[in-house]
């Protein structure tokens, strides 16, 4: 090895040694402003945190649904062709693990009503996501909850009433407990 390469190699090793400890902060990036955060942080928590002002009714929701949702989800939410949204929970329905063909929809499978608002606002209608006003999203949410027999025809959905809607499927949810290993399959 030529002398210069040896010296360079030694120096590099010395440099690496000095730099092995990673700094706590690199100082990259820039602070996010309150305004920036408010503009992008659209997620709704299951307790309703993040829900905007405004409200919606079942009646208005029915009109919006018919105009903007029914083409994909069916006139009453059960016809398709895409995701079926309406399937009220019924006392005598067989449990899902014994009825593989049972339809899973908002009324019998969704554990939180807030998810409807969050999802419709961010992703629907499929051909124009993000185009509905907050009041329109509240209304569509109200109609979907009504069609699934979860609220009455005169109920008004807003930041306070929506998280309070009782969802029958919530009691069935369990967190994954699979661990691998040679125990019984889960």
């Amino acid at each position: 090895m030529p002398f210069w390469a040896c010296v360079a190699g030694t120096l590099m090793i010395a440099c690496e040694r000095r730099n092995t400890a990673m700094p706590e902060h690199f100082g990259y990036g820039r602070p996010a402003t309150e305004k920036e955060i408010a503009a992008i942080a659209i997620a709704i928590h299951p307790d309703g945190k993040g829900l905007p002002a405004g409200s919606g009714t079942v009646q208005n929701g029915a009109l919006i649904y018919a105009a903007k949702c029914a083409a994909c989800h069916g006139a009453t939410g059960v016809e398709g062709p895409y995701n079926i949204l309406v399937a009220p929970d019924t006392v005598d329905a067989p449990p899902f693990d014994k009825a593989p063909k049972r339809i899973k929809a908002i009324g019998n499978y969704w554990p939180y009503a807030t998810t409807i608002f969050d999802y419709v606002r961010r992703a629907m209608p499929f051909n124009a996501p993000g185009s509905l006003s907050d009041n329109e999203v509240y209304s569509v949410t109200a109609w979907l909850l009504y069609a699934n027999k979860l609220i009455g025809a005169n109920a008004v959905m807003n930041a306070k009433t929506l998280p309070a809607v009782v969802m029958p499927a919530r009691k069935y949810y369990v967190t994954d407990s699979r661990k691998g290993g040679d125990g019984p399959y889960e």
Binding site: H45, P46, Y119, A123, Y173
Partner: peptide, 11 residues
């Protein structure tokens, strides 16, 4: 301090 219960982790 908790999950958001989004559509892709419920429905």
């Amino acid at each position: 301090d908790g999950p958001f219960m989004t559509r892709e982790e419920t429905s």
